[in-house]
Design a protein around this nucleic acid. Structure first.
Length: 277
DNA sequence: CGATTATGATTAA
DNA sequence: TAATCCTAATCGC
């Protein structure tokens, strides 16, 4: 179940293992059979991530667009790979590794124009160096939607999912139901900075650990999942011990600590945990 | 071993 | 708002 950091990881690793090589393709699902046959033997020239979208560019100019959705998976296999398991949408076989795609919401062959159209619909991706924070900040400053809704809106910011949404709002001490435009400038900026920070950590570690490193004894990437978060899927707040409230926002469940994330923050309200240096 | 749940998003109603 | 895509971890029996 991927958020933006996972997709960027896939892009990075596929660049290393597949780009520059003529790949053999295979499929189980008929849906993609014709496209796969067309790519078979072509050189993969680039792989890029944009939010939760992955784009593979091929020598002929074709672009494979992949969106994993809720339970799509890339399975990294040895080469030569074992027999395909389950409804594999696309198998790419490189010299040292093969990659199997299963369960994805989107796996389609696009031209450059269609690719541009998808990217144009996305907000800034905090993991991309050219990301423009101002686009996000302006959107927050103007929107009447709850901030918790906006963080999942991929046209506002691309790459945040349900887990990061809950944890980033907690880390900044912001109640998810506050109207976005009511946030103070400092709070808007805090959200962006926290998002960049968290997604970068997720990319580096290959898993979501939102707890501040200073709080834990072990290396964060070794932290068991039950210790990795402040509010997400918890009964009590990791910081104040108070009960976690579950509600729904943008058709997704969200957990929050009413005490650490007040609906009406005092003027001197400070986030529940200090920022990471 | 079956039921449940999930880090997503589009489409139809 | 609900159905859909259809993987895999987790949990109860």
């Amino acid at each position: 179940m991927p958020e933006g950091h996972t997709v960027h990881r896939h892009a990075r690793q596929q660049r290393k293992e597949l780009v520059g090589h003529a790949l053999a393709t295979d499929v189980v699902q008929d849906r993609f059979a014709a496209s796969a046959a067309r790519l078979d033997g072509q050189v993969l020239t680039d792989v890029e991530a944009w939010g939760k979208h992955l784009f593979q560019t091929w020598e002929g100019g074709d672009v494979v667009h992949v969106h994993l959705g809720l339970y799509g998976k890339w399975r990294r296999q040895p080469a030569p790979p074992p027999p395909m398991r389950g409804a594999v949408r696309l198998r790419l076989v490189g010299p040292t590794r093969a990659w199997d795609l299963a369960g994805a919401t989107a796996c389609e062959l696009l031209g450059p124009d269609e690719t541009d159209a998808i990217v144009a619909r996305l907000g800034p991706d905090p993991l991309r160096p050219e990301a423009d924070p101002q686009r996000f900040l302006d959107r927050v400053a103007r929107s009447r939607a709850p901030i918790g809704t906006l963080l999942l809106d991929q046209t506002a910011v691309a790459g945040i999912g349900n887990l990061y949404r809950a944890e980033i709002l907690f880390l900044q001490g912001i109640h998810p139901e506050r109207p976005a435009r009511d946030l103070r400038p400092q709070e808007r900026e805090g959200l962006w900075v926290e998002t960049v920070h968290q997604l970068r950590l997720g990319l580096r570690r290959g898993k979501i650990v939102t707890r501040r490193a200073a709080e834990v004894d072990v290396t964060p990437s070794r932290l068991p999942r039950s210790e990795a978060h402040y509010v997400y899927h918890r009964d009590t707040c990791r910081v104040c011990g108070g009960p976690i409230r579950r509600t729904e926002l943008a058709a997704r469940r969200i957990d929050l600590c009413p005490r650490c994330q007040p609906r009406r923050p005092r003027r001197d309200h400070t986030p529940p945990v200090p920022p990471e240096p």
